[in-house]
Simulated scan of single mutants.
Amino acid sequence: MADFKLVVSDPKTAKAYNIDVTGPRTAKFVGKAIGAEVDGEAVGLTGYTLVITGGSDKDGVPMRKDLPGQGRRKVLVAGGVGYHPKSDGMRKRKTLRGNEISGDLVQVNAVVKSYGPKPLEELVPKTEGAGKKKKEEKKKAAAEAKK
């Protein structure tokens, strides 16, 4: 089975929450395309409805809504997801992934469409970010250096 991280964005609070999706829970997502609605019950978000907005695989290749299927393709693009040209008229051949979720993905992005009875902060376990840990380590090291 495919294991991936689900990044749920909350438009009301402008916060994002990471949820690890493993085992049989991934079956609710595999085969769905960008724009599809998924019941939040699949990841422990009772009462919530999520809309899939994208994702990326282990190499960072992003999904693109206008490419059908699951696989990677080299596509000539002039802008949008996966390529932002520096000047007008520039086009480039980029490797992009289709709009369907497969077992190769590492991250799947979703946004909340309808809310449940409890707020997301209560349902998703809070984890301390890597950035905060590094800042605390730097502060400790600076304090020890002053001694």
Rank of each mutant, 00 (worst) to 15 (best):
Met1Gln: 15
Met1Trp: 12
Phe4Tyr: 11
Leu6Val: 00
Leu6Lys: 00
Asp10Pro: 15
Asp10Tyr: 14
Pro11Asn: 15
Lys12Phe: 05
Lys12Glu: 15
Lys12Ala: 11
Ala14Pro: 14
Lys15Tyr: 08
Tyr17Trp: 14
Ile19Gln: 13
Val21Gly: 00
Val30Cys: 03
Gly31Asn: 12
Ile34Trp: 09
Ala36Leu: 01
Asp39Thr: 12
Ala42Lys: 09
Leu45Pro: 11
Leu45Asp: 07
Leu45Ser: 13
Thr49Arg: 11
Val51Met: 15
Val51Cys: 14
Val51Ile: 14
Gly55Asp: 04
Asp57Asn: 15
Lys58Met: 10
Val61Asp: 04
Val61Ala: 02
Val61Lys: 09
Met63Gln: 07
Arg64Val: 08
Asp66Val: 02
Leu67Ile: 12
Leu67Cys: 05
Gly69Pro: 05
Gly69Gln: 03
Arg72Val: 01
Arg73Cys: 01
Gly82Arg: 06
Pro85Asp: 06
Pro85Ser: 07
Ser87Val: 03
Ser87Cys: 03
Met90Pro: 05
Arg91His: 07
Arg93Asn: 09
Lys94Val: 07
Arg97His: 02
Arg97Asp: 00
Ile101His: 03
Ser102Glu: 04
Leu105Gln: 10
Val106Ala: 12
Val108His: 09
Asn109Val: 00
Val111Gly: 09
Tyr115Pro: 09
Tyr115Ala: 07
Gly116Gln: 14
Gly116Leu: 07
Pro117Phe: 03
Pro119Gln: 10
Pro119Phe: 01
Glu121Asn: 06
Glu121Gln: 08
Glu122Phe: 04
Leu123Gln: 05
Leu123Glu: 11
Lys126Ile: 02
Lys132Gly: 08
Lys133Tyr: 12
Lys133Ser: 13
Lys140Trp: 10
Lys140Leu: 15
Lys140Phe: 07
Ala142Cys: 10
Ala145Trp: 08
Lys146Ile: 10
Lys147Val: 13
